[in-house]
C-alpha cells in the first residue's frame, strides 16, 4: 500500500464560521495505481489532495505514505518529504514566470545533492519525455497552455517521485492539449509505474484512470 488515508477530518475557519470540508475520509492507493477523484465543486477534492501531498495537515485522522505517518510532522519535515516523494501538477501550471523551461524543471533538483551535470541530464530527460527538449530556453509566457502544463509535468517527475498529484491538470486546456497531457500521464503510469491521484471534472478524463473515486460533501460516496 502506497497511500493510506484513515478517518481524515479537515475543517477551515472562515471568519466566524467553521466549514467542515472532509468528514472522515478513508482512501487507499496502491503503488503504481492511477486514481481519478471526482465530485462537485467544493466537495473537498483539492483539500484531500493537499493533505495527501503534505501541503496541509488534517484536524484528525491518519495519512500514511509507504508506511510512514505524515500527520504530526513539522513544516520543515513535510517540506523535505515533499521534495523527495511528491510531484505536483496544478491546473494553472504554476511555473515560475521569471525562469525559463529548463530552470523551472531544474528547481526540484536544486534541493538534491546532484551535480550540475547530473541535474542537466535529469532535466533534459524529463523535457525530452514531455516532448519539449527544443523549448528549454522559453519562458512560460512564450509557451502555450498545453506546453506549460507539459513543462510542469516535467518538473513534477524530474526528481523521480513515487507518486504524482494532479489537480485538474487539463482543466484549463483545449481538447487537443488535454489529450496530450492525458497521454503523457498514461505514459508515465504505464512505462514508469507512477502512482497518480488526479482530480478532474471531466468524466472523459477520469476514464483513463484505473479507479474512480467520488467525493461528495467531504465523504467518499463511490469507489469503483
Amino acid at each position: 500500500m502506497l497511500i493510506q488515508v484513515r478517518g481524515v477530518v479537515k475543517s477551515y475557519v472562515k471568519g466566524s464560521e467553521t466549514v467542515l470540508v472532509l468528514d472522515g475520509v478513508d482512501l487507499d492507493v496502491d503503488a503504481g495505481e492511477w486514481v481519478s477523484l471526482m465530485g462537485p465543486s467544493g466537495s473537498g477534492k483539492t483539500t484531500l489532495l493537499n493533505l495527501i501531498g503534505g501541503l496541509d495537515v488534517p484536524d484528525s485522522g491518519s495519512i500514511c505514505v509507504n508506511d510512514d505517518e505524515m500527520v504530526g510532522r513539522t513544516n520543515a519535515e513535510l517540506a523535505a518529504w515533499r521534495s523527495r516523494n511528491v510531484g505536483y501538477i496544478f491546473q494553472l501550471y504554476n511555473l515560475l514566470p521569471v525562469l525559463d523551461a529548463f530552470q523551472n524543471v531544474e528547481m526540484p533538483l536544486l534541493l538534491t545533492n546532484l551535480s550540475r551535470k547530473e541535474r542537466r541530464e535529469h532535466v533534459m530527460t524529463a523535457l525530452d519525455l514531455v516532448g519539449l527538449s527544443d523549448r528549454i530556453d522559453h519562458y512560460p509566457a512564450q509557451l502555450s497552455g498545453g506546453q506549460n502544463q507539459r513543462v510542469a509535468i516535467a518538473r513534477a517527475i524530474v526528481a523521480d517521485p513515487a507518486f504524482l498529484l494532479a489537480d485538474e491538470p487539463t482543466g484549463d486546456l483545449d481538447r487537443k492539449s488535454a489529450e496530450d497531457v492525458l497521454n503523457l500521464l498514461q505514459d508515465l503510469h504505464t512505462r514508469f509505474k507512477k502512482a497518480i491521484v488526479m482530480v478532474t471534472h471531466d468524466p472523459h478524463c477520469a476514464e483513463r484512470a484505473d479507479r474512480l473515486v467520488h467525493l461528495e460533501k467531504g465523504v467518499i460516496v463511490a469507489d469503483t
Binding site: 513544516n75 517540506a79 528547481m107
Partner: peptide, 15 residues
C-alpha cells in the same frame, strides 16, 4: 505569493 507557494510545494524550506 504564488511563487512562494510553488517553492514551498516543491519542498523549499521556509528558511
Amino acid at each position: 505569493r504564488s511563487e512562494t507557494g510553488v517553492l514551498k510545494a516543491l519542498g523549499y524550506p521556509d528558511r
